[in-house]
């Protein structure tokens, strides 16, 4: 088990290196001079432009730029800065809590709603609640995030006034609408997933055996049916949590949450390579760690799984 974890951790290194290289290359490939665009319609003087280009190593060839970037990290923990001089580490420090809170609230909402709805739908199969879950989840999966976001803002923010429309100045309630928006698709998928898995396992031999032995129905469902049907759900939640950072780009922009997603979007537009790489690398790191945790969780859920 320990060896397994160490081996997996070692695999992170090439993954991270390669992903930074690819992201750096992608930002580098965006045409146009970002310093030129900084000043807008009226060109800045050549002297100023040259100073800035030099400051951000923009005149170097790609590999040299990339090497300087990595070298800065390795030797001085310098992750670079935005074109207006803010260190990337400052930005991450300021924005990570926002995105983390958003992800956490989203996770809680989608896990609770998705799993409960899925279980109830399976238990009351073909009854009204089941039909309701089936129809509503299709709608949740089908509606674009943008539309859901604006609808929630209109209904619960503007008309009912229950939650703030935007910003992070109202504590956790600031995160409810954005989290609901972000959770919509996954809740829908999760509910359907849990429903079908549970239906499957309720039909399986070990459940029939347990029932035949005279075990209480609630215990059969939780201990035998549910536990086994949760493996795909955990996989899904893990993968989803990791990809949430991507979803945060849209949601943070609509709801004006100063998180990492918003910054990535702005920095791609402004061609701030080091910022994009810094944040995306963080996302990648997060992704691989979550994947490892998910893999380890399998063992808890299904004793047949062994790590080597």
């Amino acid at each position: 088990m320990t060896r397994y974890i160490i081996r997996r951790l070692l695999q992170f290194i090439p993954v991270i290196l390669i992903s930074t290289l690819i992201v750096y290359a992608l930002v580098f490939a965006i045409p146009g001079d970002p310093i030129r665009a900084l000043a807008g319609d009226r060109p800045m003087s050549d002297a100023v432009r040259e100073t800035l280009r030099e400051q951000y190593n923009l005149d170097d060839p790609f590999l040299i730029q990339y090497f300087k970037y990595i070298w800065g990290i390795v030797t001085a923990l310098d992750f670079g800065s935005t074109f207006n001089g803010r260190p990337v580490t400052d930005i991450i420090e300021q924005r990570l809590p926002v995105t983390a809170t958003l992800a956490l609230v989203t996770l809680v909402i989608q896990t609770l709603m998705g799993i409960i709805a899925g279980i109830l739908a399976a238990l009351y199969r073909d009854r009204f609640f089941d039909r309701f879950v089936q129809v509503s989840t299709v709608a949740m999966v089908a509606l674009p995030t943008l539309v859901i976001g604006f609808l929630l803002q209109l209904i619960f923010g503007l008309n009912l006034g229950w939650f703030p429309i935007a910003g992070v100045n109202n504590g956790v309630s600031s995160y409810i609408l954005p989290a609901l928006t972000m959770a919509a698709v996954s809740t829908g998928i999760l509910a359907r997933l849990v429903r079908s898995e549970l239906l499957d396992s309720l039909k399986s031999d070990y459940v029939r055996t347990a029932t035949a032995k005279g075990m209480k129905r609630s215990r059969v469902i939780t201990r035998h049916g549910l536990r086994n049907s949760l493996i795909p759900a955990v996989t899904f939640i893990g993968a989803d949590l990791a990809s949430m950072l991507g979803g945060s780009i849209i949601v943070e922009t609509i709801f004006n949450l100063p998180g990492l997603g918003q910054q990535v979007f702005a920095s791609i537009q402004g061609q701030e390579g080091t910022v994009v790489v810094g944040i995306v690398t963080l996302f990648v790191l997060f992704f691989v760690v979550i994947n490892l945790i998910v893999d380890l969780l399998y063992g808890l859920l299904d004793p047949r799984i062994r790590y080597e």
Binding site: F150, Q153, L154, G157, L158, G161, P164, I165, A166, G167, E252, T253, I254, F255, N256, P258, Q262, A266
Partner: peptide, 18 residues
Amino acid sequence: WMIYSEVDTAYLDVQAGN
């Protein structure tokens, strides 16, 4: 000055009196 990333959101906030 409240800083927004999305002007539509600010529009709703003015409407809501925020």
